[in-house]
Design a protein around this nucleic acid. Structure first.
Length: 379
RNA sequence: GUGACCAUGGUGCAACGGUUAGCACAGCGGGUUGUGGUCCCGUUAAUGAGGGUUCGAUUCCCUCUGGUCACC
């Protein structure tokens, strides 16, 4: 394996642990937030800005980079890190989430976490329009030019090998939150078969993580974790949805973590609102990625120690305080809410940049705080 | 001074002699958890003033007020 995972301390109060993931591109202290850089860029930021905000480990996306510019371009540029000049560790997500997000997600305007009000309209047997899922993989319709793109587990691994991140993920099917038990079982079992194909296909020394599925069904989650956890992966991702509320999420993660080998890193895919961070770390999650700090920033939401701020509200025109008086990030030390409000309403790109810098600083700070609490035996 | 054209939410436009006057932006509220890079949903808000024709006028006519353009 090209990465090593060292656990420095296990909590006595929870399943939390702290440690270090060592990669050819440097070390990452865990627990860690993985900053999303889908298209080989943290949207709105330069690499230096992302690093200054405390981001150590980035995750790019295989399907997106495959569509543009293509794995070969990245490979010929010297690999992902060389290509984007990021001097640190990186992951690539396999494209499995896009089976959902470009399918059901797009067709029904749905996130992977189901909100009560969207439930009614969608038939349980509805099929996404832009893709077809088969035993060997998924036929995507490119959102860029309408071309049909086939991607199966072997293709995803080939592409991730070309892209060359330190940690790569098995190709899975992220099911929609409305999927019924029968469909979830079929998709889960297919994901398990694909996991085996990914392991067999791999030719590089990159760390390959398997992905646990099983949707909102606790027994399926256990089953999936047991099967995937027994495979010789370097680490594990936990994907899909986790039920209706935060407590259910904890229960599901706990059930999965209990089945996974203790000595290998566990990555929670796509979860991480501020209020989730301590909760998921306590269940034994080592790394997690989330678009919330960056995505919300570009839509005008700043996260602060005192809650969310919608910086576009006209009232902030007159507010000369920083976003978060308790924050020491460059945005909070230099800029007022009034200025940020103006930038956002004037649609200046800088608004997205500054809010992203702040949000990442805030989220990374929360993780550091929890890490320190583990160190001091408080979590 | 004369003539033409115009006057519709905060702004820019649309509509028709007939029940709830449409759209965009702005405003306000909400959403956005393995990112399709400024998005999605909801909501507030208007026929310049006065008279006339008509069953009924934002629409047609007159006057006034205000504006734009042209001419003297």
């Amino acid at each position: 394996m090209a990465i090593a995972f060292t656990i420095a301390k296990k909590s006595k109060k929870s399943r939390a642990r702290m440690g270090v993931i060592s990669t050819p591109h440097g070390d990452v202290e865990t627990p860690a937030l993985v900053t999303v850089a889908t298209q080989a860029a943290v949207k709105a930021l330069t690499n230096d800005q992302a690093a200054a905000a405390g981001s150590k480990l980035l995750i790019a996306n295989t399907l997106h980079l495959h569509l543009k510019p293509g794995g070969t371009i990245v490979k010929n540029a010297g690999g992902l890190q060389e290509f984007m000049a990021w001097n640190g560790p990186m992951m690539t997500d396999s494209g499995g989430f896009q089976v959902f997000s470009l399918g059901f997600g797009r067709d029904f305007g749905m996130g992977k976490i189901l909100k009560e009000k969207s439930k009614a309209k969608i038939g349980a047997r509805a099929k996404p329009k832009l893709l077809t899922i088969g035993e060997d993989g998924v036929l995507f319709t490119s959102y860029l030019d309408g071309k049909k793109i086939f991607m199966g587990p072997k293709d995803s691994i080939r592409i991730q090998e070309a892209i060359g991140a330190d940690i790569i993920f098995a190709f899975d099917e992220c099911t929609s939150p409305i999927a019924d038990r029968a469909y979830t079982i079929a998709a889960m079992e297919r994901t398990h078969r694909w996991a085996k194909v990914c392991l067999d296909a791999q030719r590089t020394k990159q760390a390959l993580f398997g992905i646990v599925q099983g949707g909102k069904f606790l027994d399926l989650r256990r089953q999936s974790a047991k099967i995937i956890g027994a495979m010789p992966f370097a680490g594990f991702g936990i994907g899909g949805e986790f039920g209706a509320d935060k407590r259910t999420m904890s229960v599901m993660i706990r059930a999965v973590v209990n089945e996974l080998p203790d000595e290998k890193p566990r990555h929670l895919l796509g979860i991480g609102h501020p209020e989730d961070i301590r909760r998921i770390i306590k269940e034994g999650i080592d790394t997690f990625d989330c678009t919330v700090p960056t995505h919300y920033a570009r839509h005008g939401t700043a996260f602060t120690s005192r809650g969310r701020i919608e910086i576009g509200k006209a009232g902030y025109y007159k507010d000369r305080k920083p976003l978060d008086p308790a924050c020491e990030c460059p945005v909070c030390t230099e800029h007022s809410r009034a200025y940020l409000c103006h930038l956002f309403r004037a649609k200046e790109m800088t608004a997205g940049t500054l809010l992203t810098m702040h949000n990442l600083h805030f989220f990374n700070g929360l993780v550091v705080q929890v890490r320190n609490e583990i160190r001091r035996g408080k979590v």
